[in-house]
Structure formats: C-alpha cells, structure tokens
Simulated scan of single mutants.
Amino acid sequence: MKDLYLMRHGETIFNQRKLVQGAVDSPLTAAGIKDAAKMGAYLKQQGLTFDHAFASTQERASDTLELVTKQPYERLKGLKEWDFGLFEAQPEYLLPKFVFTDAGQADFFVPYGGEAAVQVMDRMDKTISQIMAKTDNQRVLVVSHGAAILMFLVKWMTSTEIVKIKDLPNCTVLHFTYNTATGKFAFVEMFEPHKL
C-alpha cells in the first residue's frame, strides 16, 4: 500500500477577489504563503517525508509546493486546473449554480472553449495513477487545484464522502492510500490549515 498526499494550492489574488481561476494564473496572497508554510511545518512535525513531489505547471501550485518542501519536484500538465474557457478571470457569480458532478451539466464549459468534466477527471486520474504506479513512489506529495481535485474525488469517492469535503479550503491536504495490486485509491483523512 502506498500513500498519496494531494494538496490544493494556497490562496491567490483571484481566490481573494472571487474571480474564476482555471487556466489563468495569479500569485499567492500573504495568507496563501503563510498557510503553505504552515502546512509544510505540520507535515514535517508529523514525520512525513516524501519520496517524490509533483505540482501542476501553473505557478500557484509550484509556488505552494516550494513553500511546503525544499525537495526537488516535477511539474506535470496533467495536474492543471480545469479550463473554464471564456469564464476565465470573470466573477465567480457568473458560473452556473450546479454541482460539477451533475452529468447533465458536465459539458457546460465546452461551448465556451473550456473542458468537459470527464476530460478533467480522466487526465487527473491518469496522471496521478501513473505517478503512484512507479516503483520508487511510496509516499508522494502532489499539489494541484480545487476543481481538478474535485474531479479526482468524483472518480474515487462516494457522493456522501465528497459532500463532506467539497468546499476544499486552500492548502488543504487529502491523504489517500493506493493499492498497487488493484490500482485503486482510498480516502484516509484530510488536513485543513485553519484546523492545525
């Protein structure tokens, strides 16, 4: 059994201003920097070290990872945030009021140049599964994004479990085990920065 620690990046200026942030990027806020460093200290205090670390190619994710650990890491496009097309950098209130897991609305962003839910789910699952399948990856840290992580959860968790953690605060870490025999992930626990 292997361990995956899947983390959402720290708070950014767009998060603070309630702007849609998928393919676009914005820098971490002072709070985002503080929370990332706090989570890094907490993981170290728990005696957690990582064989390897990975981040999305977007700066808010790699900047967060660099505050959590000083170890070398790899940036992977498969860990990027959902592309929301023309909704990028627009106020969040313009987003439709539906659950992203609703199959009837899963393609909402496609006509606007964005990704379908299944595209995000497939690339997240494929990328993380490939990471965990490598022999020397026993305990891994991955830094990604809120909506992209949600799609990974939809793949591997029940709707009841997801409801409990759907509103994923910035810098939250989700711990999963990975069964090498079956290729399946199982949720274990969650660490939220404001609860440390």
Score class of each variant (00 low, 15 high):
148 A>V: 07
111 P>T: 10
115 E>L: 06
130 Q>F: 01
57 T>S: 13
131 I>A: 08
174 L>Q: 00
184 K>S: 12
125 D>H: 13
33 I>P: 01
7 M>F: 01
37 A>W: 08
22 G>N: 01
65 L>Y: 02
181 A>W: 09
185 F>K: 03
36 A>V: 09
166 K>A: 10
23 A>T: 08
158 T>C: 05
84 F>N: 05
32 G>M: 06
20 V>R: 03
6 L>A: 00
170 N>T: 13
63 D>I: 06
120 V>I: 11
115 E>S: 04
1 M>H: 09
99 V>M: 11
1 M>L: 08
124 M>L: 12
174 L>G: 00
106 A>K: 10
98 F>P: 04
69 T>M: 06
187 F>M: 09
149 I>W: 09
180 T>F: 01
152 F>V: 02
142 V>Q: 00
55 A>V: 06
120 V>F: 02
24 V>H: 14
149 I>S: 05
22 G>Q: 03
67 L>S: 09
105 Q>V: 08
124 M>W: 04
3 D>H: 14
129 S>C: 10
116 A>Y: 09
102 D>T: 08
42 Y>W: 09
76 L>I: 05
136 D>A: 12
151 M>Y: 15
10 G>V: 04
13 I>F: 09
196 L>P: 02
89 A>D: 15
117 A>H: 10
95 L>M: 12
189 E>D: 15
122 D>E: 15
141 L>T: 01
64 T>L: 04
101 T>S: 15
25 D>V: 00
82 W>C: 07
175 H>I: 06
76 L>M: 09
23 A>W: 11
162 I>Q: 02
126 K>E: 14
65 L>N: 02
11 E>F: 00
163 V>Q: 15
73 Y>I: 04
126 K>C: 10
117 A>P: 03
180 T>G: 06
116 A>T: 09
167 D>T: 14
194 H>C: 10
133 A>W: 05
151 M>E: 15
126 K>Q: 14
25 D>A: 04
56 S>H: 02
33 I>V: 15
97 K>Q: 14
150 L>Q: 13
151 M>I: 04
162 I>R: 11
63 D>M: 12
57 T>V: 14
